[in-house]
């Protein structure tokens, strides 16, 4: 099983992003997804910058994939998507059917992203025909459903699973970070830059519930499949995706690597990953439960 690093879902200043990927080059990762996969207004880095980073990571031995935006609204979003698809060097993760159409038309193999809502073999088979060489399961996928799905495929594309990080739960035309500060989205003043791990949302009794990240709404809980890594090896999953957080991400990567190689007890790996974690762990989805639940809660 391979380890992948998902795209940075937050909006970090340019230097921070460059520093981060200089470190990533040294981490025990097989695949790195790059690019802005949340909001079209974020442009601390532009496509040529991402391609530079991609080049360096490739030289460090990583497979690099460029992530496309999950929500396409305007003609300029499409223009950016066409440039991404036509980059000529790196493969693309299609996070919307618009990307699937363009990639198929260009006869380029692609990764079918989690927002394409692949829940059954017929849809996966169709995407495979169009050029999907890998797919990422919807984050709400349960182990039982994934096992069913894969058991009905003759030769499925590579299967990737979101295994660590705050869950990307929803997308909107509205920017909730701008809304918090009573700013219109068109004049958001890039407030997302102030929240390196998103903006926490709690219930009226103070219980952490969600995380606002611009037009994306994430869980407050941090999805954490560390307890399931060993059984996962038998379930047909080829790749685990870890989603970047602002601090001590290397610890998370190494905790998963240790568990993959059974080189550390679960308790040690968990302690390592949960250090400086921006929220409590959860793993409900994988167990067919509400996503926010955690199997090891006392």
């Amino acid at each position: 099983m391979k380890l992948a690093l998902g795209p940075i879902l937050y909006y970090w200043p340019r230097d921070r992003v460059l520093d981060f990927y200089a470190q990533v080059a040294q981490w025990p990762l097989d695949i790195v997804y790059l690019g802005e996969a949340v909001c079209g207004r974020r442009h601390e880095l532009r496509l040529p910058d991402w391609l530079d980073i991609a080049e360096r990571l490739q030289q460090a031995g990583k497979e690099v994939v460029l992530a496309s935006q999950p929500l396409i609204e305007s003609e300029s979003d499409l223009k950016l998507l066409r440039r991404l698809v036509g980059n000529g060097r790196f493969s693309v993760e299609a996070n919307d059917m618009a990307a699937v159409r363009l990639l198929h038309a260009a006869q380029l193999p692609f990764v079918a992203g989690a927002t394409l809502n692949v829940y059954n073999p017929a849809l996966l088979g169709w995407l495979q025909q169009l050029g999907a060489r890998r797919w990422v399961a919807p984050v709400e996928m349960a182990q039982a459903d994934l096992t069913d799905l894969l058991s009905q495929m003759q030769s499925p594309p590579q299967t990737e699973l979101f295994a660590y990080g705050r869950l990307p739960l929803a997308y909107s035309a509205r920017c909730f970070t701008a809304r918090r500060d009573n700013l219109p989205k068109d004049d958001c003043q890039f407030r997302c830059l102030e929240h390196a791990d998103g903006l926490p949302l709690a219930t009226r009794e103070g219980r952490p519930f969600l995380t606002l990240n611009g037009i994306q709404t994430q869980s407050a809980g941090v999805y954490n499949l560390l307890p399931h890594v060993q059984p996962l090896r038998a379930s047909g999953v080829d790749i685990l995706r870890l989603s970047p957080r602002s601090a001590h991400m290397e610890e998370v990567v190494r905790a998963f690597r240790d568990r993959l190689e059974a080189a550390a007890p679960l308790a040690d790996a968990l302690a390592r990953a949960e250090r400086a974690q921006p929220g409590a762990s959860c793993d409900g989805y994988w167990r067919g439960r509400p996503g926010m639940e955690w199997s090891l809660s006392s």
């Binding site: 999950p70 929500l71 927002t115 809502n117 829940y119 919807p138 984050v139 709400e140 869950l167 739960l169 929803a170 997308y171 909107s172 035309a173 509205r174 969600l210 709404t217 869980s219 409900g284 989805y285 439960r289 509400p290 996503g291 926010m292």
Partner: peptide, 21 residues
């Protein structure tokens, strides 16, 4: 719906059952 339909898992995250499935 304030979220993109088909791309909202808030209900399944909280209560198990959601719109998609």
């Amino acid at each position: 719906c304030v979220m993109v339909e088909g791309r909202c898992l808030l209900s399944s995250y909280t209560a198990g059952d959601g719109p998609n499935t």
